[in-house]
Structure formats: C-alpha cells, structure tokens
Amino acid sequence: MKKVFSRPRSLKSTPFHYCAGCGHSIIHRVICEVIDELGIRGNTIGVPPAGCAVVAYNYFDVDMLEAPHGRGCAVATGIKRTLPDRVVFSYQGDGDLAAIGTAETFHAANRGENITVLFINNAVYGMTGGQMAPTTLLGQTSTTSPPGRNAILDGHPIRMSEILANLEGTAYIERVAVNSAQNILRAKKAVKKAFQYQIDGAGFNMIEVLSQCPTNWKMNTVDACRWVDEVMSKTFPIGVIKDTGKGRKDAD
C-alpha cells in the first residue's frame, strides 16, 4: 500500500508541547506542508513570537529568529530587507500582534513589506493563563473579564484583518479556521497563496487563523471546535478580506 498521509518533511519529529487539541499544532503542520509543496525549505526564515508558540523553532525545520513580544513584523521586515530572496514569515498570537505589537504590525502593513504573517487568533492570551485579549468576544469570560467582556469597560473586539485591509500596502488578507478537516484544507490553500504572493513580490499579506484554545476556553476539543463555528466566526467571519490580485493568478 502507498503512504498517502504522513508528517511533512519540514516538520521535525519533536512531539508538540501544545495542549491536546490546540490549533497551533495544526497550523504548524499546515505551514510545513506548504513549505514542502513549494519546495522552499532551504530558503525560508520564520519568526516565532512570545506566546504559546514561543518555541516554534523546535518544530519547523527551517531557519528561525525569535522576536521580542509583538515585534514579529519588525524583525521579519529586517530579515526580508537584508535577504530579499528568502521567504520570510512571522507567526504571531492575537495578544502579540493586536496588543503589544499593534504599531509594528500596522506600520509594516502600511509600508507594504513583502512578508507573510500568520496571525493566530484564539481570543485569549493563551500562554499566560487565559487573560482577555484585544480579540476576546463581547460577553466572553476570561481570567481578567470574569463576568464576560463588557464593551463599556473593555472596548470591542478588534478585527485586525479588516483594519489592515484598508491600508494601501496590503496585498492579500484572508481569515480561515482549523476547527474541521474541511477548514484545515481551506487554511492550507490560503497559506500557500500567501507564500506565493510573497514569492511574486506582491507586498504585505496575512492569514488570520481562528485557532481553538480548549484549555483557556475551558472546553473539550470537540466543543471548542464547535464554538469556533457557532460563536467565534460570528464576530470574525471566515473568508477573503482583501485580494489585490498582485500575486500570480495560479496562486488560487
């Protein structure tokens, strides 16, 4: 019999430290599958964040350079400007990208830096124990919003993808999820297109991934995946948010 599914070459055999059912693990594998399919393993540089994915370099079999909390887009900018022939991606959580790193993200997008950003939205600060993030939904409980997020006290959840889509410099932005096999396959297509856009010199591109965090949502994995569909995607609708078509047409 022929092997039709196994670990991608770019994903090391190290077992993941992530919690059971965590979306980070799935997204890591999807990125590695894309790196394999595009044949860019020796040519790719990743930038891991502070957050649950802080040791992502233990898993990706590509060069990686850790960024301080929130500064992924700034570090990726430096790498890409110095080594423009490399494929450079920044991997960031929602606390990282949409709170402490808002300025770096916004201005890299506005400058149209030719990098790919993987924005992992799990609606909480995962690593530090489930505090409210800029993306926490209205009414969602967290350790710092025990009665649920309240718009008057805490503001509304920030839709970074829609905001960045308004900037001239952004070429392609899509929001995907990894809560079902079908959505995982769609997410992979989007990541591949984003990398292809970078290779084609299109400019700033970002894939936002709705990523289950069963631990801090205090749910089992099956319920967490259902919650992405039934609740989270109402505030963060899945789909293409901006596509300038600047990448190669066959990127689709």
Partner: peptide, 20 residues
C-alpha cells in the same frame, strides 16, 4: 483511506496507507 482523521489530528499521530 479518506485521510480526514489524519488531517484533523493536531499531533500528526496518524499515517494513512491506501491501495494507490
């Protein structure tokens, strides 16, 4: 050999084999 289980598995713990 539809591979849905392997695609869904966060740990990459499942390999799938198929008669082509």
């Amino acid at each position: 050999g539809c591979t849905l289980c392997a695609i869904s598995c966060p740990e990459v713990a499942i390999e799938v084999y198929r008669e082509r």
